[in-house]
Amino acid sequence: MRKPLNHTQCVVLTLCWAALCFLVLTSTPKIDGPLVIMILISGALVFIPVIKSLKSRNK
């Protein structure tokens, strides 16, 4: 099993995701359903490993 992410990696990963979401949301002419679904799925792909890493580090 691989090592859990450290706090710096979690913060950098979260900030990169937030910056990309900001770029997508500001550059699109209108916010529609597929865009919202894409952001929710990308958030799940980013935050599930971060939360698992933080939980495993607390044990």
Rank of each mutant, 00 (worst) to 15 (best):
D32P: 11
G43C: 03
L45A: 14
I41T: 10
P29D: 10
I37R: 05
G33Y: 02
I48Q: 03
F22R: 12
N58W: 12
I37L: 10
L35Y: 04
V24C: 07
K30I: 02
V24R: 01
L23P: 00
V50L: 15
G43T: 05
L40V: 13
I37T: 08
G43A: 13
T26G: 01
I39Q: 09
F47E: 02
P34C: 06
I31M: 11
I39W: 08
G33C: 03
F47N: 03
V11D: 06
C21K: 06
V36Y: 05
I39M: 14
W17R: 10
V12F: 11
Q9T: 05
I48N: 03
L5S: 06
P29A: 05
H7A: 12
M38Q: 06
P29E: 10
V46K: 01
K3D: 13
K3E: 15
F47A: 00
P34R: 07
T8P: 00
V50C: 10
K3T: 14
T8I: 14
T14V: 06
I51H: 13
L35C: 02
C21L: 14
S56H: 10
P34D: 08
V46W: 03
K3L: 15
A19T: 05
M38Y: 13
L54C: 09
V12K: 04
I37K: 04
I37A: 04
M1H: 05
I37Y: 06
V50T: 09
K30R: 14
G43S: 14
K59P: 00
A18M: 14
V24E: 07
T8R: 03
C21A: 15
P4I: 07
L20Q: 11
L45Q: 06
I31K: 08
F47T: 02
H7L: 12
I41L: 13
A44H: 01
V36R: 09
I51W: 15
G33F: 04
L5A: 12
K3C: 07
H7N: 07
L15M: 09
L23C: 09
K30G: 02
N6G: 11
K3A: 15
V46S: 01
L15Q: 11
T8K: 02
A44F: 11
V46H: 02
K30V: 04
V12T: 09
H7W: 10
R2K: 13
L54F: 11
V36T: 07
P49G: 04
L25A: 10
W17V: 00
I51M: 15
K55A: 11
C16D: 12
L35W: 06
S56L: 06
I48C: 04
H7Q: 12
L5P: 00
K30W: 14
A18S: 12
G43Q: 05
T28L: 13
L35A: 01
L25Q: 08
L40C: 10
P49S: 04
G43W: 03
P29W: 06
S53C: 03
L54M: 15
C10M: 15
K55D: 05
V36K: 11
